[in-house]
């Protein structure tokens, strides 16, 4: 605007959706980080709002329970001045039998520019993306992907430890059911981290499958060994609602072998980070004293979630095909 190109333009193919991290390059992840740093600054202002998405409509379709992701996306959209509508299956026409695609077509006709979707079926956001003219953000689908969570995890690691490359990251617990673990695997692999999956065999499944998809990873069934030299300890929630009978002998048995305790954290590197995507089963996969210890980044994960989601909405709006 000053008559020469003062603004640095992003050099990347225009992205329209955020469905998983498998199609994010390292450069693109770093661009998300840079935008998120700026959004964090916006969130420290007295007026935590900028007009960049004024007049745009963001619809949160949460067909599965959520506190932090839904509130976080809602605050992110509002901080960018978008109009935000949040829906849950209960109380919508879904309870009258309306299909997902009918809902999407209705929202499109009502003028939605972004759909943020959480769904219990893996792949649901991809179906929506095929039938919606705007942008789709996957806020968690089945056990498949949760890209905004993985990005905020990566961002938090980078913020606390400075770098991600070469760090030993141990993902612990209910990996079988975890979309957070899968998206983190893509992101951590792209950023050059060394990932160890640590779980009982029944909560992991076939070792070969994991190594085929993410060749660099290591698999461990012994948490006391796996924590040695770790930079990041990422506990996952034991997803009892998805749990089939017989996967675990008992919660107490699971906890004895796979809970993050202060003793286990002490065997990792001194500055190691403790993370958890929430919600937590305190006393099962993580102990209360670990949650509140100085090494815990769990609260920062939540705070950073808003900035990351603001960054994603901002970058998508810039790359969208529709006339936003």
């Amino acid at each position: 605007m000053t008559g020469h190109g003062t603004a640095t333009m992003l050099e990347r193919p225009q992205r329209r959706h955020v469905l998983d991290l498998d199609d994010f390059s390292r450069e693109e992840i770093e661009q998300v980080f840079r935008a998120a740093e700026m959004m964090k600054e916006v969130l420290t202002r007295a007026i935590k709002q900028v007009p960049v998405l004024r007049g745009k409509t963001v619809v949160n379709l949460f067909w599965e329970a959520s506190t932090r992701t839904r509130v976080s996306f809602e605050l992110a959209a509002k901080s960018l001045s978008a109009n935000v509508v949040s829906m849950t299956a209960a109380g919508s026409s879904v309870s009258k039998g309306e299909s997902l695609l009918d809902t999407v077509r209705t929202l499109q006709a009502l003028g939605a520019d972004f759909i943020v979707i959480r769904h219990s079926e893996s792949g649901a956001p991809y179906l929506v993306a095929q039938h919606f003219r705007g942008s789709v953000l996957n806020a968690g689908d089945g056990r498949h992907a949760h890209p905004s969570q993985a990005l905020l995890d990566l961002f938090t690691i980078r913020e606390r430890l400075g770098t991600i490359e070469g760090r030993k990251v141990v993902i612990i617990g209910d990996i079988l059911h975890s979309r957070v673990a899968r998206s983190n695997l893509w992101g951590l692999q792209t950023m050059g981290a060394h990932v160890v999956l640590c779980a009982p065999p029944t909560l992991l499944g076939a070792e070969a499958w994991w190594k085929q998809t993410w060749p660099g990873i290591e698999i461990s069934y012994d948490l006391d060994e796996a924590v040695k030299g770790a930079d990041v300890l990422m506990a996952l929630r034991l997803q009892r609602e998805r749990m089939q009978a017989g996967l675990l002998p008992s919660l107490r048995e699971y906890s004895r072998h796979f809970a993050l305790t202060a003793e286990r954290v002490a065997r990792a590197r001194p500055e190691a980070l403790v993370m958890h995507p929430g919600p937590m089963n305190e006393g099962i996969e993580i102990m209360p004293d670990v949650v509140t210890s100085p090494q815990s980044a769990i609260e920062e994960q939540v705070t950073n979630g808003v900035a990351i989601r603001m960054a994603l909405l901002y970058l998508l709006a810039g790359g969208s095909q529709i006339s936003l």
Binding site: A7, M9, L10, Q14, M38, P51, V52, Y314, G318
Partner: peptide
Amino acid sequence: DITLYRDDLSLRHPYPMVGP
């Protein structure tokens, strides 16, 4: 940094990077 307050963002694809 005025990027988030520009009136021509919808005309610029992709968006410019925001600064501090």
